[in-house]
Amino acid sequence: MSELRFDDVTVRYGTGRRATTAVDGVSLVVPPGEIVGLVGESGSGKSTLARAAVGLVPVHGGRVLLDGEPVAGRRRAAGPSPVQLVFQDPASSLDPRMTVGESVAEAVPRERGTSRRSAAVRAEVERLLTLVHLDPDRAGARPGQLSGGQRQRVAIARALAARPRVVVADEITSALDVSIQGAVLNLVRELQRDLGLSILFISHDLAVVRYVAGQVAVLHRGRVVEQGETAQVLGDPRHDYTRSLLAAVPRPPAGSLTTSTIDSTRTTRRTT
């Protein structure tokens, strides 16, 4: 279990007069083994923060620390990043030309000299696919042959393949079918519980964040405007912006059939 800490992080794009500050002095902690939600509208800097966490964009001020050590420094070393990012759209985060097994295998750490096709790697790929409830026989399939939810599971498996200490999940359900979204969210909770993963869970859907994250931070124009226990932030929003986000959540269809329709015990057993 590891802790991810953003310490007064500032990220700028562009140079000179055209520079824009996408993330502005954000301090945020993902405690070991916990899921922290990050909400905010488009352009509020969520994805920038996610990319900064894994070193895909350079940080202009402040530091991103993994258990007290800078993450960016580690990236110089060969091998997978200890902080892994799962992207929003599995359609673009998986190379359409590679089989899903190959994609996952790319991230499996190997002894020097062992091939990506070695039995050890293959066994690990199988284990990971099973972990995310995919049939290991699908390793030979290409992303185009899988559904969106299956692809996102593959993307999660690839992130887990790197044996990350922290996972940043950037809008991982917003490109998915609602029927699958539920299963992926259940998977996220399960992985956190079973593997003790620390997860920064980014979403624009407050109902989704509420379901997976015990704590939540609200990002607005690159700044954290509110953070705390999810129940408390959603129940008693302090900041106007948080209130407007809450208002944007589509209401559950009135009188929805949630309690009576679906046999959720059976469904869980099938998915776990």
């Binding site: 407050l206 509420r210 379901y211 059939l257 949630t258 329709t261 046999d263 959720s264 059976r266």
Partner: peptide
């Protein structure tokens, strides 16, 4: 009906797994 039920909302029970279509 199952599709409608699968959408999490602000009153979803946190202690149960989300409804999914098996």
């Amino acid at each position: 009906r199952a599709l409608v039920a699968a959408v999490p909302h602000l009153e979803t029970d946190l202690d149960r797994p989300l409804a999914v279509i098996p």
